[in-house]
């Protein structure tokens, strides 16, 4: 069974339709690339999945459980939305690290707050917090940032900041990790280190949705791909096929701009 099932998702901002009839599914352990020009609705789609926007129509299910259904207000209660968000992780285009916390604190903050809420009276709290710290350090190590744990975001390069942001998202063990153009805010020489980390995650079969403009990367790393234009899915299929041999004229046009350069 698919881990993620999105059905007939629709989102308007006032009279503007940003997403229309978006349906797709994702298997566990697979990576899905979403490509398309700016303004095609890719980011809004990710924001809907992470409950930062409320779709006007459609449903989102994870592991068969309906997390959101526009027709059912019971699925939209603020208190539950918070828990549901934890099914997804989101890595932002411009990192959004918390500037007043070190790299390690950025990674562990949310976990610690959750742990404190759940185990208020637990006597083993100290051990738990230590375990979270330990896991945070291991995550940073996996990102190649073991020696940067005590640094504040402004002391890190863009690529390092984005890797901290990835560790921060992973710390909550989301079912599906979403990337919103993770390298678009980086200098070209820094994109490599971030893409390498994401590639590593794909090799370990992390379920991911990656919005990206890096076509070669999408083709090599993603299993599935979706091409969006004007708020609709124009074409979807295996990433290699879609990017190497698109079936639709609109997709060909879009991709030709990348091969020209």
């Amino acid at each position: 069974m698919a881990i993620l099932e999105v059905r007939a998702l629709e989102k308007h901002f006032g009279p503007t339709r940003v997403l229309e009839d978006i349906s797709f599914s994702l298997e566990e352990g697979q990576a899905l690339a979403i490509i398309g020009s700016s303004g095609s609705g890719k980011t809004t789609l990710l924001r809907c999945l992470n409950f930062l926007e409320t779709p006007n129509h459609g449903s989102i299910s994870v592991r068969g459980q309906v997390l959101f259904d526009a027709a059912d207000p019971a699925t939209q209660r603020e208190s539950e939305v918070r828990r549901k968000r934890l099914h997804f992780g989101l890595v932002f285009q411009n990192f959004n690290l918390f500037p007043q916390y070190t790299a390690l604190e950025n990674v562990t903050l949310a976990r610690k707050l959750l742990a404190k809420e759940r185990d208020e009276a637990n006597s083993g709290k100290k051990d738990l917090l230590a375990a979270i710290d330990q896991e945070g350090k291991e995550l940073l190590e996996r990102m190649g940032l073991a020696d940067r744990a005590g640094h504040y975001p402004h002391q890190l390069s863009g690529g390092q900041q984005q890797r901290v942001a990835i560790a921060r998202a992973l710390a909550l063990h989301p079912d599906i990790l979403c990337f919103d153009e993770p390298t678009s805010a980086l200098d070209p020489e820094l994109t490599g280190e971030v893409l390498k980390v994401i590639r590593g995650l794909a090799d370990q079969h992390t379920t991911m949705i990656i919005v990206t403009h890096e076509m070669a990367f999408a083709r090599d790393v993603a299993d599935q791909a979706i091409f969006m234009d004007g708020g609709v899915i124009v074409e979807q299929g295996p990433a290699k096929e879609l990017i190497n041999a698109p079936k639709m004229e609109r997709t060909r046009q879009f991709l030709s701009r990348y091969t020209e350069n």
Partner: peptide, 12 residues
């Protein structure tokens, strides 16, 4: 973005 980062991390 600071608030959104907190939200997606499940913070109140």
């Amino acid at each position: 973005g600071q608030q959104e980062a907190g939200l997606v991390l499940g913070m109140t």
